[in-house]
């Protein structure tokens, strides 16, 4: 069986200077699973997510993404960081959606979506443009291709950002608080796209404060606090009956 779309992390440790942000975090995501990560601010959710696609270098631990050692190769004595080319290649199989969208402001929506396929994979422009149109339509933005990010609302920008990641045909999608920078009435349109994606069987890891989304869409849930996974398991189960005191306290505050 192919290991595409899986994540297996064991004992991930990450420090910024003297401050340890992740203590021995384990994470397993199966193919097609939607995993939500919740927790208070500063608990290391973003850092964990960023480790999964190499935006942060892991200090220690084993990380396998899509069945491959991610970001390093192993010899009997050590793990060696991969060259940039190789790392970039592994990254193309993981999509990342940011809180602040991070669309390229110098490119139209269509060019943003084409950027990955054309500039990284060397796809043919005409073909990539057609694909971009299709993706735009799939996130409900047919005909918005010529708009620059500054001409789009936050919700629209975020949907373009999702389409941009999808254009690389990733096996895994990572979302870092994709709706936190949005006006409340725009949250729904982005969540709808994400639900749609989950239904299609995309492996997703989502850092979110949207408990409704977690309850409705998520298969598994991780509650993190101070760099530790405090509680994990079935999403609905945890949201309904949290076992740990810290989880209970957190859920009481946000629900």
């Amino acid at each position: 069986m192919s290991a595409d779309g899986t994540i297996h992390a064991r004992g991930i440790r990450k420090s910024f200077g003297p401050k340890t942000v992740l203590h021995e975090v384990d994470l397993d995501v199966a193919c097609g699973e939607v995993c939500c990560i919740i927790g208070p601010s500063g608990s290391g959710k973003s850092t964990l997510l960023r480790c999964l696609n190499g935006l942060e270098e892991v200090d220690a631990g084993v990380l396998k993404v899509n069945g491959e050692d991610f970001g390093y190769y192993e010899t009997p004595t050590a793990y060696h960081a991969l060259g940039r080319k190789r790392l970039a290649q592994q990254r193309t199989r993981i999509g990342m959606v940011f809180q602040q969208f991070n669309l390229f402001p110098n490119m139209t929506a269509q060019e943003n979506i084409m950027a990955g396929p054309v500039l990284v994979k060397g796809a043919e422009k005409r073909h990539a443009a057609e694909e971009a149109e299709r993706l735009l339509a799939s996130v409900g933005l047919r005909g918005f291709g010529h708009c620059y990010p500054a001409q789009l609302s936050g919700g629209q920008q975020q949907r373009v950002a999702i389409a941009r990641s999808l254009a690389m045909d990733p096996q895994i999608m990572l979302f870092d608080e994709p709706t936190s920078a949005l006006d409340p009435e725009k949250v729904g349109e982005v969540l709808a796209v994400m639900k749609d994606l989950a239904k299609k069987g995309m492996t997703m890891v989502v850092v979110t404060h949207e408990m409704g989304f977690a309850r409705e869409v998520s298969d598994s849930l991780l509650f993190m606090d101070e760099g530790i996974v405090v509680e994990r398991g079935d999403a609905r189960e945890i949201l309904a009956n949290p076992k740990e005191a810290r989880t209970q306290a957190f859920l009481e505050r946000v629900l």
Partner: peptide
């Protein structure tokens, strides 16, 4: 920084990133 991270997460090489993302902006 977000622009660089977005380019990185698409797997852009340094040269492409410089030419298509950093220099135009």
């Amino acid at each position: 920084k977000g622009q660089i991270e977005a380019a990185d997460s698409l797997g852009m090489g340094s040269w492409t990133k410089l030419r298509k993302v950093i220099i135009p902006q």
